[in-house]
Design a protein around this nucleic acid. Structure first.
Length: 572
RNA sequence: GCGCCCUUAGCUCAGUUGGAUAGAGCAUCGGUUUUCUAAACCGAGGGUCGUAGGUUCGAAUCCUUCAGGGCGCGCCA
């Protein structure tokens, strides 16, 4: 239920019906006409630019047109109590008692107020961290982002498959397995472990090694012979760590797709065959890489994807020199698999360092699906850690990077989730440990949670179940300024959801919830200054309608926090 | 050199898909509590929306130029 859309339609239809009287020839399907919340100091429920848009289209003076449309609306729509013409041709409108009651009842009658049913089928791939160790903070942002985006899309009635692509194939995995092997030798045979360029120094490898020693009876005297078992056990053990961390963050994927098994299923060949048939893949040569001089580059003939057709700088190799598949080739195969599973949309959540990858992979999806499936790539920028205002460095080489579990030891899940979303994904986050731990207004999570806790406390005092239906007092319906402001904010909620899901930008939700909470806290505090504005007197609510407005806040806050996956304590 | 992202108050950032007098938080200064939870509220100051053009009734938002910052630019994943 979107109140703006409801009244916009009503207004548009009314104008259409009175087209002749209004001397309008061209309506252009009301393109660009909007109804929205006016700037706060105007004290109107809605404002519309209809006269500006139609005036321009029909070469009429906007103010004169506005005066006429005002009259027409007053004669035909009973829901407005007041319509103001404002320069340069805006119409500001206030809902009548009947109109306001109608909107409130509509909101109350809808369990998922704000939801805009789309009924599409999405696949969203996120995290997909290499199974070579635990998650670090960098993964955390994409993880939360993907999860919340999924929640948002589900809230809008879509089917969403949350997927993790397990990169259990390729050189990084080989390095990882070698590292585990060396650690096993260290423990079992007291061999000195010396980190080198391709060997992972991280101490977590020791834990994995211990686990594998305990679990198997192999002697680990020959790397080649141990490799297959190492492969399954070490990767399994990594994935367990990763899943545990995700679980602590409240994230659960539906599918884990293995790169290795895609390769073994010959999916790569199938995908490439399709692309070859449609002439997107050719056998050819690539130019040497730009940027830095590379030492080992050789010009060899190989299979190449024509990603330059899709705006990429250059075509991309599908094979390495030795003829084996590149990471990209395997990823093309994976996306071919996704395309063939018939989703309406694919979404990939990427880290900032993968920006350059977008054109080739969206190109591949476009080619593989014959432009039927659209892939959206969303990039999350870096998270910079701060402690007591100072940057908190982590070095991957030394293996002392900060893991998600380190983070979770200090900061609770709710704060992490909220903070990771309290920025646009295009902007770097300064994540300050100390600020997140604060229980003040400076920490937005607590501020919103506190708002809900206060509402719960209010209902507790009144001995009314927050989940019960609260009746409006229609006879004495009269909202004060605070309530009107809150109600106007409540009207905005479906719009926030709409834009967030259309632009795949969930960060709008925490900002909105914060604003809504501010209005509530302000209203609440008025009771301290003025006894009249207290909600309760002698254990009973003074005005049922106030209670309904507060109930509306609780509905929206609850829906919003559910999407964010942040808990809402009833008492704080 | 090329591609993507960013540039809005002293600091960190929003900005409703082109609308009215550009908004929050922090910081600074000043005020509010025998409470329906002060973990809160109220007030004040603070802006050439990076630059220069263009599009139009109207631009922080769209187009172009330039400047500054970040990320990326193997057949690594």
């Amino acid at each position: 239920m979107n109140i703006y859309n409801h009244y916009l339609k009503l207004i548009n239809n009314c104008v259409k019906d009175n087209k002749k009287n209004l001397e309008l020839k061209d309506l252009n399907n009301f393109k660009g006409v909007i109804l929205e919340n006016p700037p706060t100091n105007f004290n109107y429920d809605f404002s519309t630019n209809i006269c500006l848009v139609l005036g321009k289209l029909n070469k009429l003076n906007s103010i004169n047109l506005a005066k006429k449309i005002k009259k027409t609306l007053e004669e035909n729509i009973g829901d407005f109590s007041e319509i103001e013409v404002a320069a340069p041709g805006f119409l500001n409108l206030n809902l009548s008692k009947k109109g306001a009651i109608g909107s409130i009842l509509k909101i109350l009658s809808n369990d998922n107020y704000g939801s805009i049913p789309e009924n599409k089928n999405y696949n969203i791939e996120f995290v997909s961290a290499n199974p070579t160790g635990p998650l670090h903070v960098g993964h955390c942002r994409g993880a939360v982002f993907g999860d919340v985006l999924s929640n948002l899309l589900i809230f809008n009635g879509n089917k969403v498959t949350k997927e993790y692509y397990v990169n259990d194939y390729g050189n990084q995995i080989q390095n990882f397995l070698k590292s585990v092997y060396l650690r096993i030798r260290e423990i079992k045979y007291n061999e000195k472990f010396t980190p080198s360029e391709n060997i992972y120094p991280g101490l977590y490898i020791i834990e994995i090694a211990k686990k594998i020693i305990k679990k198997t009876k192999l002697d680990f005297n020959d790397y080649e012979k141990s490799k297959s078992l190492l492969g399954t056990e070490a990767i399994k053990s990594s994935m367990e760590m990763i899943k545990e961390d995700l679980n602590k963050l409240g994230i659960k994927h539906d599918n884990f797709i293995s790169e290795r098994s895609n390769v073994e299923k010959k999916l790569v060949e199938k995908a490439i065959k399709k692309l070859t048939n449609s002439n997107y893949v050719i056998e050819g040569y690539l130019d040497p890489p730009k940027g830095e001089e590379s030492k080992n580059w050789k010009k060899t003939k190989k299979l190449v994807f024509k990603s330059s057709l899709f705006g990429d700088d250059t075509n991309r190799a599908l094979q390495k020199d030795d003829g084996s598949w590149t990471y990209f080739a395997n990823d093309v195969a994976y996306h071919f698999d996704k395309v063939s599973r018939n989703y309406d949309y694919l979404i990939d959540i990427l880290g900032a360092d993968h920006t350059g990858y977008i054109k080739r992979i969206t190109g591949a999806v476009s080619a593989l699906s014959e432009t039927k499936t659209k892939l959206y790539c969303k990039v999350c920028q870096l998270v910079k850690l701060f402690k007591k205002g100072k940057p908190f460095k982590m070095s991957k080489r030394a293996g002392d990077f900060i893991t998600v579990s380190d983070l979770l030891n200090e900061v609770d899940k709710d704060s992490i989730r909220f903070m990771m979303l309290n920025r646009s994904n295009d902007v770097e986050i300064d994540f300050d440990f100390d600020k997140v731990l604060e229980k003040t207004k400076e920490n937005p999570v607590f501020y919103v949670q506190y708002c809900y806790a206060r509402i719960c406390s209010l209902f507790r005092t009144l001995k009314i179940d927050l989940n019960e239906l609260v009746q409006l007092d229609q006879e004495n319906f009269n909202l004060n300024l605070y309530e009107k402001k809150i109600l106007r904010k409540i009207y905005e909620w479906p719009k926030v959801i709409n834009i967030s899901s259309q632009k795949l930008e969930p960060h709008r939700i925490p900002f909105y919830l914060y604003d809504l909470s501010t209005l509530f806290h302000a209203y609440w505090s008025k009771g301290n200054e003025n006894e009249e504005l207290k909600f309760i007197s002698n254990g009973k609510v003074k005005n049922k309608n106030t209670l309904v407005i507060i109930k509306l806040i609780s509905i929206v806050v609850k829906n919003g926090m559910n999407i964010l996956g942040v808990s809402l304590p009833e008492k704080m």
